[in-house]
C-alpha cells in the first residue's frame, strides 16, 4: 500500500494540473513547428522520407524482404512508426527540464509534470501517422481491422516506459549534458538492435530471448501485430509480463531518481 500511495498522489496531481499540462503541450507543439514554413508537415516528412529511402534500397537494390508474406513497405512502416515515436520522444524528454529552467526558479511548480506535456504534444502527430499507416497498408492489400486500435495499447505501454525514462534522463541531464549525447547514441544503436528492418525470426529460436530483452522489441513487434498480422497482445503473455514488469521498475526508479535529484535543480541550474 505504501508503495502505491505516491503513485496515487501523482495521478491526483495530474488531474489537478491538467490545464497546465495541456498548456505545456500546446506551447511545446507550437515551439516545435514555429519558425518553419511547412510547420507540422515536418513531423511526417522526416520519418516518411526515411521509410521511403529504406524501401527503395531494400526493394530495388538489395532485394531483401524480411516480411516474406507482406510487402516490405508495409512490414517496415508498421514497426517504424513505433520506433520513431519512441526515439523522438526520448530525445525531447531528455532536454525538457533544461529547456524550462525558468520554471525551476519559480518554485511553486510541479516539475514532474514537465515530461507529460512533452509526451502529450508528440502524441497528436503520431496518432495521425498511425491512421496514415493503416491507409498505406490498405493500399498494399491489407484491409483495416479493429486490431488497428490495439496500437493504442502499445502506445500506452510506450508512454509509461517513456515517462520513467524521461524522469531519469531529464534530471540527470541537468548534471551532465553528456546524457543527451548518450541518449542520441543509444537510440542509434536501438534502431539496428530492434527488429525494425529485420525480422526476429531470422534469429535462431534459442537466442530470440536475447533480442526480446530489448523492451523496444515489444512495442515495435506489437505495432506490427496490430496493423499487419492482426494478432492480439494476450497471445504473448511472457513478453507482456516482461515488458510491464520492466516498465514498472523503470517508473519506480524514475520517480525515485527524480525525487532525489529535484531539490538540487535550483542549485545546478
Amino acid at each position: 500500500m505504501k508503495l502505491f500511495h505516491p503513485a496515487y498522489r501523482f495521478a491526483c496531481s495530474l488531474w489537478k494540473w491538467r490545464g497546465t499540462i495541456w498548456e505545456l503541450a500546446r506551447r511545446d507543439f507550437i515551439n516545435q513547428h514555429s519558425g518553419t514554413y511547412l510547420g507540422v508537415f515536418w513531423s511526417y516528412a522526416q520519418p516518411l522520407s526515411f521509410v521511403l529511402l529504406l524501401t527503395l534500397v531494400f526493394t530495388l537494390g538489395l532485394r531483401y524482404n524480411p516480411g516474406r508474406d507482406v510487402p516490405f513497405l508495409v512490414y517496415l512502416i508498421s514497426g517504424m512508426i513505433a520506433w520513431q515515436f519512441f526515439s523522438g520522444a526520448i530525445g525531447g524528454l531528455t532536454g525538457i527540464i533544461r529547456a524550462h529552467s525558468f520554471l525551476v526558479r519559480k518554485g511553486s511548480f510541479n516539475l514532474a509534470i514537465l515530461p507529460l506535456g512533452k509526451l502529450l504534444s508528440v502524441i497528436v502527430p503520431h496518432l495521425i501517422l498511425i491512421v496514415a499507416t493503416v491507409l498505406i497498408c490498405w493500399l498494399n492489400g491489407i484491409a483495416p481491422s479493429l486490431y488497428a486500435f490495439q496500437t493504442l495499447y502499445y502506445l500506452l505501454g510506450m508512454l509509461c516506459l517513456l515517462l520513467g525514462l524521461g524522469w531519469i534522463t531529464s534530471a540527470a541531464n541537468l548534471f551532465f549534458e553528456d546524457v543527451s549525447r548518450m541518449v542520441g547514441i543509444l537510440v542509434q544503436f536501438g534502431f539496428w538492435f530492434t527488429p525494425i528492418i529485420w525480422n526476429i525470426r531470422l534469429v535462431p529460436a534459442k537466442y530470440r530471448w536475447l533480442v526480446k530483452l530489448n523492451p523496444a522489441c515489444y512495442f515495435v513487434d506489437g505495432y506490427r501485430d496490430s496493423l499487419v498480422y492482426q494478432m492480439p497482445f494476450w497471445q504473448k503473455p511472457l513478453e507482456f509480463g516482461y515488458y510491464w514488469g520492466l516498465t514498472l521498475i523503470v517508473l519506480w526508479l524514475g520517480a525515485f531518481v527524480f525525487r532525489r535529484l529535484k531539490p538540487h535543480f535550483g542549485e545546478v541550474l
Partner: peptide, 12 residues
Amino acid sequence: IYFGGIMLGFSR
C-alpha cells in the same frame, strides 16, 4: 502572461 499564469494553475 498566459503561460506563466497557467503554470501557476490558472485557466486560460
